[in-house]
Design a protein around this nucleic acid. Structure first.
Lengths: 387, 387
DNA sequence: TTGTAAGCGTTATCAT
DNA sequence: ATGATAACGCTTACAA
């Protein structure tokens, strides 16, 4: 025998039973009125009054158990401190909101166990679906993705055979765009500051860099390659190590955070950017435009990937029987002042607002020259102060 | 009469019933084994096997309905694009994680209705507790906070009478620290680029600025004050407007995002920082250290406030009967290169790594001089690439 | 140890 | 329109 049903639960909060009793109707009637379906005028009045009097608040968990949905969608990324994920999140949020759902974000901090745990917990029905963007993928991880009880869409590379919706870009090609551009600008001693090679993006960018150099018949000088993690501090430190042993005339960084660190290190070392060293980042985040000089950057279409991922997720939530889909968003290079001037130029504009016209299009295409004095990034949807 | 209980639910996913039937035991036994409490060796074996065979995954919603907890905690902020919230989030996350819970973040985009809706949805039991940091507070909002079914802690100013746990700082004092410092450095034409005055922080900072100037017997020149929103783009635009009509020798910005925009505008206008114009931001985010020159900034103790808020929340979850608590974290000024040199100095160091010793302590105390070549921000807990 | 069944709070079905 | 009750999937008190 279980406990007997309490009309007032242990924590004292009112339930439909409380309201129904107070209104002198059945819980069915109370529920109907509370949901705005049916009910005579008199019943409606009584129930509404009772609900207001006791301060009734529906229990969303109970409702979800019944309806098998929560109206929540989650996004799991490594680090919301990285503006690229903020951009992705904004794009996802706007799609998700249009479906009447709310987006929740979780930062995994790159801890794979953490991510798997989150997947295992949230995906067990707390959310209607999830978008994850892992930088490392283990078998355990993949298993969690595949047999998730709720729809999951992955942003990033995934094994070709994984039966999971997937939106990716071609970051190898992205690196090639940067190399082409720099070579066209006369640079030959091109350095590369990468993230960890045991991550999916790190490995892809490394491969892309090597392939692109080979394509230009440039021998890779190992001194010109450094690895840290995908953070500002590591980018700065890695660049300092690189500068201590060799003298590049250009630097490609695996993301914008690293690029900002590299810029810091270059300026501290007395190098002019772009006169002495041209600098190209990746991800094309707001950060690239906030720097002096503004940073050229390879856009990996993060917002676009986020938007597509969200659309795929909503489709799958609506119809879980869809076959796994795989989409690709092409990268493109945005040229700004940090790589704008050609090598021999002795004194180029370092004015942060100065436009550059060095949009030398390499053999891989997809290069844009960003007008230097663009209106700057704007995010109508956000404010962000410290209350 | 309701439907009859299906052993295999409509969506085909196994439940305890499925497992129990397959193992040839009761659902009680199955549940016990699945939860690791009780069960004979033989039963354990059978249930484990059955669960594995059918790929059983527990339904967390159902479990939560029973246990009245979800193991989730939410944080609602305006804009995760603002690094100050990232810092706050990291601090909260580490406390929350230590309690075995997971943190979810929601960006409200400053839309008050959005925030209230989130509160109304999540707080209805989807999470065990919430931390919110609103920049605008309406009555409706406050009502939602007060009668939330789950514990809520507010980071930021709240009416003194609101019966809600609250962690705040004194941003008026924070602005005063900046003014004192600049005055001590010989600046007199101090400008102020603020956020919207109808926000809580915007109003507080405006008041703080006026009071601090008055304290130094400096008349406020209205031309020296500009208002935008708390974003980079607005900060840049506002500074451009300000520079178009007057000529400040120092600028205080209501947050670091605005300060970066101001720096951009100043450099584009040919002003040297700090020689011509000293610049001080607020929030002391990573961004301040990523700039050239590095930005002085008033720390409002965001990480500390986040940490305290999380602790208060956990305490309240453990004991909901606690009386409302209110805590305050004092601001302090971190001096870096952007305001380091005194006014008359014709040529100060603009090397981004250069240390400054101009930590002139004003009458309000709490000033730190940041060694310029500090190891730069590091976040062991995060990586952040674009997979 | 095991099974039966109550109960978490809600919605939905069916008969009245 | 209304009320009684099954069901969502799970945990657990109690009896066997």
């Amino acid at each position: 025998m279980g406990r007997k049903r309490l009309q007032e639960p242990a924590d004292g909060r009112p339930t439909v039973h409380t309201v129904a009793a107070r209104a002198g109707v059945s819980i069915a009637s109370a529920s109907r009125v509370l949901n705005g379906v049916g009910g005579s005028p008199e019943t409606i009045r009584k129930v509404r009054a009772a609900a207001a009097e006791v301060g009734y608040v529906p229990n969303a968990i109970a409702r979800s158990l019944q309806s098998q949905r929560t109206g929540l969608v989650a996004l799991a990324v490594e680090d919301i401190g990285n503006p690229v994920y903020v951009a992705m999140m904004r794009a996802i949020e706007s799609v998700v909101a249009s479906s009447g759902r709310q987006l929740l974000v979780h930062a995994t901090g790159g801890r794979i166990d953490n991510e798997t745990a989150l997947l295992r917990r949230l995906a067990n029905r707390y959310v209607d679906g999830m978008i994850v963007s892992p930088i490392r993928v283990t078998d355990d991880h993949l298993a969690a993705l595949v047999d998730s009880p709720v729809p999951v869409v992955v942003v990033g590379q995934l094994g070709a055979d994984a039966p999971v919706d997937n939106v990716r870009t071609d970051s190898r090609h992205g690196v090639a765009l940067a190399v082409d551009h720099l070579v066209a600008g006369g640079r030959r001693r091109i350095g590369f500051v990468n993230g960890p090679l045991d991550t999916v993006p790190g490995a892809a960018r490394d491969a892309g860099f090597r392939a692109a150099l080979a394509g230009h018949n440039i021998d890779l000088d190992a001194h010109l390659v450094e690895v840290g993690d995908f953070q500002y501090a590591a980018g700065r430190a890695a660049t300092e190590r690189l500068l201590a042993r060799t003298d590049p005339d250009a630097l490609i960084c695996a993301n914008d955070l690293i690029a900002v660190g590299a810029l810091h290190a270059l300026l501290a070392a007395g190098r002019r950017v772009p006169e002495d060293v041209a600098l190209v980042g990746m991800d094309d985040t707001d950060l690239a435009r906030m720097m002096f000089p503004q940073l050229s950057s390879v856009s990996l279409g993060s917002a676009e990937r986020g938007r597509r991922a969200a659309e795929l997720l909503l489709e799958r939530i609506a119809d879980p029987t869809l076959p796994p889909r795989r989409e690709q968003v092409p990268p493109h290079l945005v040229v700004r002042a940090s790589s704008g001037a050609a090598l021999p130029a002795p004194r180029a504009a370092t004015d942060p607002g100065a436009a550059t016209t060095a949009g030398a299009t390499g053999s891989h295409g997809a290069t844009t020259t960003d007008p230097g004095v663009e209106p700057a990034p704007s995010h109508p949807s956000s404010e962000g102060a410290t209350p």
